[in-house]
Write a protein that binds this DNA or RNA. Structure first.
Lengths: 229, 229
DNA sequence: ATATTTTGGTTCATAATTGGATCATAATAG
DNA sequence: CTATTATGATCCAATTATGAACCAAAATAT
């Protein structure tokens, strides 16, 4: 099997080696696996062999590739999440947000400071500027809701929102996001985000909560429409 | 080391590296991250790449930038999950319950079954039977609120309530409970619990949420009165 | 107070990098 | 021999990086 004489390494051997390096952590320091061309020259095999090996790892879910960008180690490997969060279903998650976020808005009115609102404004503008890019929008959206929680100063609520948003960056959810986030939905979200922030700035707690509920209602609707289709 | 020169670092790699340095604490001591231009020359990449990396960290909440001043490491250390709960202050916890439990009541109306309500009834009777024993009452109270969450069928909400109630069994909280739980308060709690369950059984979501808010309002009040005294 | 320097924010055109895909050829295994 | 696999070369399309210039806010020096 593994004579170092003349037997070249096959794609399976390379895959096994990479798998080992990822799990052992020697490659985990960086999010990105070296480019295929580098790996090919390092292992002294052709690029096709490397591609075949990486393909195996991708099927295992250990790694994900983005054309033009690189091959990345799946976040599931590096960051461990609570199993409860991982197994949460989309509608459960929306319901949890329905519980938390309207009240977070009320508390933001009570405890939020000017700098908190400025930060929210920044993320809001970022979202509005990237209405055509679901990925960038999604990141800013996550940051917005997180900053909203932070404005309450309540460490428990911040932590809960962190737990909830942490799940958004996983594979399954990335696909879901692509299905639900079209430009119309994003524009609607932007308006609702702005309504919410305006109500908070105006120090109207119930109105802010109402705006947030409307936002979440939209999110739930787009979710059910997508999953039913 | 082996291939750093050949394979140039991308923004993801640099973000990962900075994230590592921050979390490990080697950069944490200094308030300010080196300026972008310095980092760019240190890492031998363009400033745009550095900016892209820092932007990733900012979205994660690890770092915050101030134009004209610099980029600063966010004060809060990456908090341990459990310690967040452990270090939660009583009022923070009540606020979190204020967010979760009224909505849990609404969902209980929607998704609760007869067996769930029977279980709630059982804990309620247990509480009423032990109005004179703060310890037994406290346990039944915890069980009641947990069963309430379970009746929603939402694993996320159940988990969050579990996290919250888990803290109640600690030393500090045991003392607090002794201070707040006199027989009058307990009788009031019992009435409010019964009101809540009645509203749920009557399938009146908003009314159930209202009863729960009244309950939590009482809890918060007894807390502030005690801690102020 | 005022001027200068430092710093992040922004934009732009251009270049380099990277995974995706194909194909003819050679090597290897069964 | 035959089927499978690896090779090496080439082109494509998406993504990212680069380098330069300029701005505005903040910090610092005069």
């Amino acid at each position: 099997m593994e004579q170092k004489k003349q037997t070249k390494l096959g794609s399976s051997d390379i895959a096994a080696q990479l798998r080992r390096e990822i799990n052992s952590g020697s490659l985990q320091r960086f999010e990105r696996v070296p480019p295929e061309r580098s790996l090919a020259s390092n292992y002294n095999v052709s690029r096709g062999t490397i591609r075949s090996a990486i393909n195996k790892l991708e099927i295992e879910g250990l790694v994900e590739t983005r054309a033009g960008s690189g091959t990345y180690i799946s976040k599931k490997v590096s960051g461990e999440n609570s199993s409860v969060i991982q197994n949460a279903r989309p509608l459960e998650l929306v319901d949890a947000r329905f519980a938390l976020e309207p009240h977070i808005c009320r508390l933001a009115v009570l405890h939020g400071r000017q700098t908190d609102f400025d930060k929210l404004e920044k993320f809001l503008e970022e979202m509005e500027k990237n209405s055509d890019d679901p990925v960038v929008f999604g990141d800013s959206d996550t940051a917005f809701h997180r900053a909203l929680a932070e404005s309450t100063g309540n460490s428990l609520l911040i932590w809960m929102i962190e737990q909830i948003t942490s799940v958004r960056n996983q594979d399954e959810w990335a696909r879901m996001r692509h299905l639900t986030l079209n430009e119309n939905i994003i524009k609607k979200y932007n308006a609702q985000h702005r309504d919410t922030l305006s109500a908070i700035r105006a120090r109207e707690p119930e109105n802010a909560a109402k705006m947030m509920r409307a936002h979440l209602q939209t999110a739930r609707l787009s979710l059910t429409l997508t999953t039913d289709a």
